Simulated assay, not measured.
Amino acid sequence: MTDTSSYLVCNTCGTQHPTAERTALTTCFICDDPRQYTPPSGQSFTTLSALRSAGDGRHNGFGPFIKDDPRFTHIVTKPKFAIGQRAILIRTPKGNVLWDCITYIDDDTVTRIKEMGGIQAMVISHPHFYSTHLEWAERFGCRVYLAREDQKWLARRDEERQVFLDAVETRVEINGEDTGVRVIKLGGHFPGSLVLLYDGHLFTADTLMMTPAGRANWTVDALGRPRERPKGVNTFSFLWSIPNMIPLSADEIARMWGILKNYDFKSAHGLFEGADIVDENIKARVLESMQIQIRAMGYGGHALLEETL
């Protein structure tokens, strides 16, 4: 049986490649794509085995992030590795769904999650977070839902574990029962970029990239007095390449809205720890952000600017 812990893992994006031979893999095809990047130091690789034995106290931290709602737990590797995204465990009455995936996994992580009921299904938003998803799927005996449009970005394949989604909306079922989890294919960042909706909570990864202005505290001024959020301040940006700051086209943003406007949600949760906004008006803030970006790109006559809720 192959020891996959010796497979090479990209230090920049966290993707696991199906070889332990360093001379056979000198570049990461995920990072060669202009939606990712190569650091000034160049491309380099490690392994899960090396990360586990590094002696730097690396571990996965667990924590709640929606007040008074224990159904949601994010999982974050500390110290940060690669992109630094979080995975989110969603507990439903029918079973647990893991949204997105992080590279680092060890026995302590598996034990902790099994104590919480395990993982019965995984959904990954886009190729930058494919990471070590087959390691996770094998440890928990579950399947992984991925967009069919993006399968060329898979470094490892497993016909039994990987399920490719074709529809704009997919209902996640566990043992034939509907969990209430909805996977929505918006595209944009990648052709198959996904978001996940459960009980009014929208998990956006970087399909909708939450901005610092979006997370800002506009409720009070410097003297602690109540204030309103300034007009014209965005909450999200819509990018083809996040690290290289290449925006999506106005028409692509409008196409995404044409799908998302059919759903209601009361909060949004992005790819990083702390990227959480609970606001009954969050859907309006998505539309406002799209209109701000389209107007700033010079499309003052675009039809999306006339959209309202």
Rank of each mutant, 00 (worst) to 15 (best):
M1V: 15
M1N: 12
C10M: 14
C10G: 15
T15H: 15
A20V: 08
L25N: 15
I30Q: 08
D33E: 06
R35K: 03
P40R: 08
G42P: 06
F45H: 00
S49H: 12
S53M: 13
N60V: 05
G63R: 04
D69K: 05
K78A: 14
I83F: 15
Q85W: 03
R91S: 00
K94M: 13
N96Y: 02
V97G: 01
L98T: 01
C101R: 00
D107I: 11
T109H: 02
I113G: 00
E115I: 02
M116E: 05
H126S: 06
H126Y: 15
F129C: 06
R143V: 11
R143C: 14
R148C: 06
Q151L: 10
K152T: 14
R156F: 12
D158I: 15
E169T: 09
E173Y: 08
V181A: 02
F190N: 02
L194G: 01
Y198M: 06
H201Y: 03
F203V: 05
D206Q: 14
L208Y: 06
R215F: 15
D221N: 12
G224T: 15
S237R: 09
W240H: 07
L248A: 02
S249D: 09
I253M: 03
A254G: 03
L260E: 02
L260S: 02
N262Y: 10
Y263R: 09
F265P: 02
S267E: 05
I277N: 06
I294L: 11
Y299S: 02
L304Q: 01
